[in-house]
Simulated scan of single mutants.
Amino acid sequence: MSRLLRLFTLCLVFIGSLASAQAPLRVGSTPSGIPFTFLDTKTNKISGVMVDLISEIGKDQGFAVEINAMAWGSLIAALQGNKIDVIAAAMYITPPRQEVVDFSDPIYTYGEGLFVAASDAKDYKTYEDLKGEVVGVQIGTAYVKPLQASGLFKEVKVYDSISDIMRDVNLGRIKAGFGDYPIVAYQLGQGAFPETRLVKGYKSVWVGSVGIAVRKGDKATIDKINAALRKFKADGTIDRVLARWNLK
């Protein structure tokens, strides 16, 4: 009888471990970070560079992914609270973030872009050219603290999305906005805000690389992600995904 009980217990453990292994990886992404992550209104699903990459990683490493749309500012809290397992968004790898999450190898490097009203013809080069002005920046980005710490601006307004900043630039509520260069360039390139222009001559102050984040200490997951990324870097998969979204 005891032998049968042991066998039954082993079967339950095996079935439980199999179910756990097949559980999808819960991925947190944002609906407003085009082309990295965004809500595709045609499919009503989150799409973009980082979604494509985490999906390819899942195929390569043998796990399913479940994409969860959430606000940018809640991503790290959701990861720490075990509501998601991975962050796949336009998130810079920064020392403060590395204290609370673990990042993959760098995927794509860029800096912040500056945008103003199309009617503003001035060729802004640096922060100093906007001294005394009111500017906008997206909450949770790596640009917030440097802008505030510069002491150059009359006010640094913090917004939920880049689209909200562009709206206020168009309405004249703020002089300029700062955001991830590829995201700003893509949105303006789609013609969504024809009264806003990207300042081509502006020199980025903060340049960093985006990566995929997991909970601190989740070595098993980050090892799988990095193994796939290194393979994709060698075989050109990353370059093909970036090119699909007009990133070089």
Rank of each mutant, 00 (worst) to 15 (best):
F36E: 02
T41V: 10
F103I: 01
A118R: 15
G58N: 01
S74V: 10
S119I: 10
Q80V: 08
L25C: 08
I76K: 09
L79W: 11
S74G: 03
L39T: 02
V86K: 13
G73P: 00
I67C: 03
D52C: 07
S74L: 12
E99M: 13
A118W: 08
G113R: 13
L25S: 03
V49E: 03
L53N: 02
M50I: 00
S74F: 10
N82R: 14
Q61S: 05
I57P: 06
L79A: 11
A118H: 12
R97E: 02
F38Q: 02
A23S: 15
T126C: 02
A69P: 09
T30D: 05
A77T: 14
L114F: 15
N68M: 10
D85W: 13
T9P: 00
I67M: 05
F63P: 00
P96R: 12
A21V: 01
L53K: 07
M91G: 00
N44E: 11
A23P: 00
M91R: 14
L10A: 09
V100P: 03
N82S: 13
P96L: 09
Q98E: 14
I84Q: 08
A71G: 11
R26Y: 09
D123Y: 04
M70W: 04
E56G: 00
L75T: 13
A71V: 07
I46T: 03
G28K: 05
N82K: 15
P106D: 08
K125N: 11
S32P: 00
T43Y: 08
Q98A: 13
G16L: 10
V86D: 05
F63C: 01
A71R: 14
D85C: 12
E112Y: 13
K125D: 06
W72F: 14
T94N: 07
V13G: 00
A21D: 08
E56F: 01
A69V: 04
T37W: 06
T94P: 00
S20C: 08
T43G: 02
S119H: 06
K42E: 08
I67K: 03
V100M: 08
D105A: 13
S55G: 04
E99Y: 08
E112K: 14
I46W: 05
M50K: 11
A78K: 10
D40Q: 09
D105R: 14
L39C: 04
K42Y: 08
D85L: 11
A69H: 01
A118N: 13
N82Y: 13
F38I: 05
P95A: 11
G113T: 12
S32M: 07
R26E: 01
S29D: 00
A77Q: 14
G58Y: 07
L79C: 12
K83I: 02
F103H: 06
G58S: 02
I15W: 06
A77H: 11
M70C: 02
S29L: 02
I76P: 03
T37E: 02
V100D: 01
P24D: 04
F14V: 10
S55Y: 01
V65N: 02
T30C: 10
L114V: 13
A118L: 15
S119P: 02
D120W: 04
P35V: 06
E56P: 01
S74H: 10
G73W: 09
S29G: 11
Y92A: 15
K45R: 15
